[in-house]
Nucleic acid binder design. Structure first.
Length: 414
RNA sequence: CGGGGUGUGGUGUAACGGCUAACAUUCCUGUUUUGGGAACAGGCGACUCUGGGUUCGAAUCCCAGCACCCCGACCA
């Protein structure tokens, strides 16, 4: 992609009322645009990141046997009355249509997925089943904050699994714990993301959160580094520690962002809809469920919080909007022609590259490159050409190295 | 939802109750410049959040509303 063709551009100044790092950097680098409190639009660069994250999640969900669907955003009121959440969920958006009928905007989809799957799943032969979707969710947060970390409209992956018994749910649930860990590894924050025991609500002892350690987090967790797990402050007590076999003296307190949450729902939502299957003995058995949430936009915000410095973002390769930022410097035609050639070569080899073809000073291009944060900065100039190629610098490192383009491509392949 | 704060060109700021609301940046024109946010010249861009009120006169004072931010509460 040619940078001159990007309709967005970076800013030198950002709105004065932004304080959270993710919002400041994402707005400054024009990945997102704020529309109202807790509501953001995704611009070309930001959307590319979202798509990368989604692709990784999809891949892992599909490998775990999930089938992707896209359910409606509008939810009939009756469904929510059935589970009792029409009145009990404070942050439910309720809207009226022209005939004064009330509907909800989906904050989560248990009330929709159960009646949907119920139509098709009647027998033990249809189980187990898991379906998921990636979609904008709506929650009327009384106080949206922390940039894209806690919005009123946000992108979330939600998966729901259906099982014949608790044993089967348990197996799948444990498998999903590994799947979640894989996703955080792949997007680049696995080493600081902990599976965390958290409140399970009225229907199971615990749920499991996935918490990424950073000062920007809203949650407080206690980590047992040896075991690689953590306990959320909200459920921490001696009884719980004993049950989990955790020694209190080994726990370290940290702030963290909740980037995922999985629950054993059991019959919490299947029962109100009388969602049953026939077993081998012609008996009606209530279906057992699990649900698995992951905030896609929140994950993007978390990445910025965790992977950035005072100059800008440092995208992990797996989710970077482009892999390479190609910067021709100077006005020589030789350089711009060479840059074009290199650009084509990268593209042909399948590497995503952003070519800064704007006629700006070196300093401005460097500043933008640091801000946007692509993993590799490749400079082409009279100087680099004289020294035998291009200057390659990783965003995360201070120093670059001049090398031939072929050698760089070899390096990328390795 | 409780408490606090802030609303001025797209963005960041300035302006004693009193001249045509100023400066920077962005953007446009031109000349120059090109390895760490360049220089010069010229130009476009504002019903000062909205509605009331006080006053000869309001960006400025008062009231109400709205929006945004922060702290707290809330958060499958």
């Amino acid at each position: 992609m040619l940078q001159s063709a990007l309709f967005t551009k970076t800013r030198k100044e950002i709105p004065a009322d932004e304080v959270s790092k993710n919002a400041i950097l994402l707005i400054k680098a024009s990945f997102v645009n704020k529309e109202m409190a807790g509501v953001y639009s995704y611009l070309p660069l930001g959307l590319r990141v979202i798509k990368k994250i989604e692709a990784i999640i999809r891949d892992e969900m599909n490998k775990a046997g999930g089938q992707e669907v896209l359910m409606s955003v509008f939810h009939p009121k009756e469904n929510w009355e059935k589970t009792g959440r029409w009145n009990s969920m404070d942050d439910l958006y309720k809207v009226k249509d022209s005939s004064d009928r009330e509907v909800a905007l989906g904050p989560t989809h248990e009330e929709m997925v159960v009646p949907l799957v119920q139509q098709y799943v009647n027998s033990y032969r249809d189980l187990p089943l898991s379906v998921y979707q990636i979609q904008n969710k709506f929650r009327m947060e009384l106080r949206a904050k922390s940039g894209i970390l806690r919005g009123r409209e946000f992108i979330m992956k939600d998966m729901y699994s259906f099982h014949k018994d608790e044993e089967d749910l348990k197996n799948y649930y444990e498998k999903m714990q590994v799947v979640y860990k894989n996703i955080y590894d792949r997007v680049g924050i696995g080493h600081q993301t902990y599976m965390t025991f958290a409140s399970g609500g009225s229907f199971s002892k615990f749920s499991h959160e996935f918490q990424t350690v950073t000062e920007a987090g809203e949650d407080t967790i206690y980590i047992d580094e040896e075991k690689g797990i953590a306990v959320n402050k909200e459920v921490l007590n001696d009884e719980v520690l004993a049950e989990l076999g955790i020694d209190r003296s080994k726990l370290v307190e940290k702030k963290a962002i909740e980037v995922g949450n999985i629950f054993e729902l059991k019959t919490k939502y299947s029962a109100p809809f009388d969602m049953v299957y026939k077993n081998e003995n012609d008996e009606n058995i209530t279906i057992i469920m699990g649900c698995y949430g992951m905030g896609v936009s929140r994950l993007m915000g978390t990445l910025v919080e965790v992977c950035s410095d005072d100059k800008g973002i440092i995208w992990p390769e797996a989710v970077a909007p482009f892999l390479i930022h190609l910067l021709p410097l100077g006005v020589s035609e030789n350089v711009s022609e060479e840059a074009k050639k290199i650009y084509n070569e990268f593209s042909k080899k399948g590497f995503e590259v952003l070519l800064d073809d704007r006629s700006l000073n070196a300093g401005e291009k460097f500043a933008d490159a640091d801000l946007i944060g692509l993993p590799y900065r490749v400079v082409v100039s009279e100087r680099s050409l004289k020294e035998g190629g291009v200057e390659v610098k990783r965003r995360a490192e201070e120093k670059g190295e001049v090398m031939a383009v072929d050698k760089f491509i070899e390096m990328l392949k390795a």
